Simulated assay, not measured.
Amino acid sequence: MMSNLFSSFDPSTSLYLSTNWMSTLLGIMIVPSAFWLVPSRLNIMWTLVINTLHKEFKILIGTPTKGATLIFVSLFSFILFNNFLGLFPYIFTSTSHMVLTLTLALPLWVSFMIYGWLNHTIHMLAHLVPQGTPPALMPFMVCIETISNIIRPGTLAVRLSANMIAGHLLMTLLGNTGPFLSLVMLNILIIVQILLLILESAVAIIQSYVFAVLSTLYSSETS
């Protein structure tokens, strides 16, 4: 019996270290095979995705620094692997917890802020007042822009974890009603679950892309 609605997402194993978090490394174990196996259709497709993301992130960043897009492509890949692994039964969804999402968002935001304020101080100050703001509203705009800048890592983390929890929670609630349904309703439930699984697959891709793109946009504002 669950003590509350969200207890199904709590880590269930805890000896000295919760082994649920080991699922975070499963996606990394898949990567090295692409370096020594003959490229398959999956490898070619993934390479095409990476090259497309690299070109798009390069445009968003707007700086000629070599390798600047690698961190964001790696971030996209890491989140995408973990989102998809969470769709498999009995695999811990690490991206549905703020512990992981905030760990990804906060260091990136802090590093962008430190770099921007140390190297482009005037540019960072100019960002606090949008162009065309009346002089009377400038103090209020500075406060609003400062608050919106501070909550950026929190919104990144909450957006990813909330979207992953929402779909998984709905699938869990519908799945728990299965033993109490008739045969006709059970068939309808299976169809609904399959549709939800397709939707969650799309959400897994979209949320990893949104996280990486927003991080890229935040970094472009500091240069």
Rank of each mutant, 00 (worst) to 15 (best):
M1P: 10
M1G: 15
S3E: 14
N4M: 09
L5P: 02
F6M: 15
F9K: 09
D10L: 14
P11W: 03
S12L: 15
T13K: 15
S14V: 14
L15W: 14
L15C: 13
Y16K: 13
Y16I: 15
L17P: 05
S18F: 08
S18Y: 10
T19K: 14
N20M: 12
N20P: 04
S23G: 07
T24P: 02
L25Y: 12
L26A: 11
L26K: 09
L26P: 00
L26H: 10
G27E: 01
I30C: 14
V31Q: 11
W36G: 03
L37A: 10
L37I: 07
V38P: 03
P39V: 09
S40K: 08
R41C: 05
L48R: 15
L48M: 11
L48W: 08
V49K: 07
I50N: 07
L53K: 03
H54S: 12
F57G: 00
F57I: 05
K58D: 11
I61L: 13
T63P: 03
P64R: 11
T65S: 07
K66A: 08
G67R: 05
A68Y: 01
T69R: 01
L70E: 06
I71G: 03
L75V: 04
L80I: 03
F81D: 01
N83I: 00
L85H: 03
F88C: 08
P89K: 06
I91D: 01
S94C: 06
T95L: 04
T95K: 01
H97K: 11
V99W: 09
L100P: 00
T101C: 05
L102Y: 09
A105S: 04
A105N: 00
A105K: 00
F112P: 00
M113P: 01
G116F: 02
L118T: 14
L118S: 15
T121G: 00
T121E: 02
M124F: 02
Q131H: 12
P134F: 07
P135K: 12
P135Y: 12
L137Y: 08
L137R: 06
M138N: 06
V142M: 12
I144Q: 13
I144Y: 14
I144T: 10
E145R: 15
E145Q: 15
T146Q: 06
T146Y: 06
T155E: 13
L156C: 08
A157Y: 00
A162W: 08
N163Y: 11
T172C: 07
G178E: 11
G178N: 13
G178H: 13
S182V: 02
L186T: 04
L186Y: 06
N187D: 11
I190L: 11
I190P: 01
I190K: 13
V192G: 03
L196N: 05
L196V: 12
L197K: 09
I198Q: 10
L199Y: 13
E200R: 08
V203K: 03
Q207H: 08
Q207I: 10
S208C: 10
V210Y: 04
F211S: 00
V213M: 12
L214T: 14
L214G: 03
S215I: 04
Y218T: 12
S219P: 01
S219G: 14
S220F: 04
S220N: 14
E221H: 10
E221N: 11
S223G: 10
